[in-house]
Design a binder for these strands. Structure first.
Lengths: 254, 254
DNA sequence: CCCCGCTGTTTGTCAGGACAAATCTTTGAC
DNA sequence: GTCAAAGATTTGTCCTGACAAACAGCGGGG
């Protein structure tokens, strides 16, 4: 028998800083996560039981459990009673965040840029009012942008924001993403309803996106809410299907 | 001043069964959730502080916190230090599960039915082998189905399952969904990578789905993994964009 | 040789307590 | 009247301790 590559409980050294303002369980979770990413904790390996781990780190078991639990919720670890906690064996990358297209493209090295086609205050149409939960005719900031990657058109983005919520400077809209501007304005996003579909390009869309007329386009409509339940943005976007797909990962909630 | 509709801390009566095998924190979470659904806890209302709640229920504070935390993770509640825990004000329905199309349609009252077009064992193509993480040419079960709602074609579903993992009886495939068959066969789904795009219908697809040739179609590719990290299914599906959109909700992980 | 039950291991659940940090409210000073 | 400081309230973090439940592996009986 060769020495079996069975999941041995790896013992790594973690450094915890009790004087740091960042919680201990979170420090543990971060170091575990980076150990998993760097391969120090290969897929399938066991973590060693929680009580030993707590003793070795000088922590209590609930604190260790809290740190581990956060990674279980992320889908990186799996717990089994009587067995232990082991690193999940599949490739887990992004658990589908409420991310902005701009950030997604930037992290993918796609070199995104933006051209603002429209940026004005208008009374809300019936569709926009219903999506934002405001009265028809109330003032909303309408922004229409063309998103490009490597100089090629990628998507037409049309956003509606309740007037007064945000200062939508055209210059900043061209240099960064809308969600970044929201967060720096103190708006904390909480949830969003999304709807993804497809349809054929109209003549105007075809010209703007440099696609043949009637080409298949991906559509996405999204209403985003902050943590008080207030609708802060309604977006109606169109993507070139030949150059973009939505990619994400789902987790089964146990 | 009229009596302000400010969020008063509602005091409800919960019944906990300590002899039940279902955990106390979970009993609390379920009753809180149903109270929110039924409107006993209206959006914006406060829950009352955890210590009082624990005393009233005869529970410890960690147990109460665990129950509340599970609803926070679901997006139903929001905690604020110094303020309290309150019911989130937006409409939260489904936090995007890894659900099967069949179940989705059935719960939506769409009366789904299935016609199996193909069900056979074949050697894996390069694409399928890469998606499932198996060697090219290994045997896979290929299932091709037409999904209908109210007798109308809705989607063409093509699934690939490693041979031997599951007994794919054609009769059961027509009367239920693939994911239900997997679960009843002891396969516990853990995560999946999805990719949603669009393209124009080929002549064959157009005829099968009763769409004009070149019509916009929604495409979805998904690889599903069980909790050991093993790929258990690769699906490549095509939906009629005129009759179907992907709808789901996202939560921002704090 | 196979099946059953026993035992050790590990996570799941629950209790009770303590202090820190963030927030709102009230009070006081100017 | 306005602003700042002090206090009260509530959640966030962390500790110790205990028992229950599920699982793997071992050994005995058939």
């Amino acid at each position: 028998m060769t020495p079996s590559p069975s999941p041995g409980s790896a013992d790594l050294d973690f450094t915890l800083d009790r004087s740091s303002p960042v919680p201990l369980y979170y420090q543990l979770a971060q170091q575990l996560e980076s150990a998993i990413e760097h391969g120090s904790l290969p897929p399938g390996s066991l973590l060693g039981n929680e009580i030993d781990l707590a003793n070795r780190l000088g922590l209590s078991r609930p604190t260790v459990r809290q740190g581990i639990q956060s990674l279980v919720d992320k889908g990186l670890l799996v717990r089994r009673r009587g067995i232990g906690t082991q690193v999940v064996h599949s490739q887990v990358k992004r658990p589908l965040e409420l991310s902005s297209l701009y950030d997604d493209l930037e992290t993918a090295g796609q070199n995104p840029s933006t051209r603002v086609l429209r940026n004005e205050i208008q009374p809300a149409s019936a569709e926009v009012a219903a999506a934002l939960g405001i009265s028809e005719g109330a003032e909303v900031n309408v922004v229409e942008r063309l998103r490009l990657t490597h100089g090629q058109p990628m998507a037409q983005l049309r956003n509606h924001v309740p007037a007064g919520l945000l200062d939508l400077d055209t210059g900043r809209l061209e240099s960064t993403g809308l969600y970044r501007m929201m967060r720096s304005a103190g708006v904390t996003l909480h949830s969003a309803n999304q709807s993804i579909g497809a349809r054929e390009a109209t003549a105007e869309e075809a010209e703007l996106l440099e696609e043949p007329e009637g080409a298949a386009l991906l559509t996405m409509r999204r209403t985003a809410y902050d943590d008080t339940g207030r609708a802060v943005e309604y977006g109606s976007h169109v993507y070139r299907a030949s150059r973009y797909t939505f990619q994400f990962q789902l987790l089964v909630r146990g």
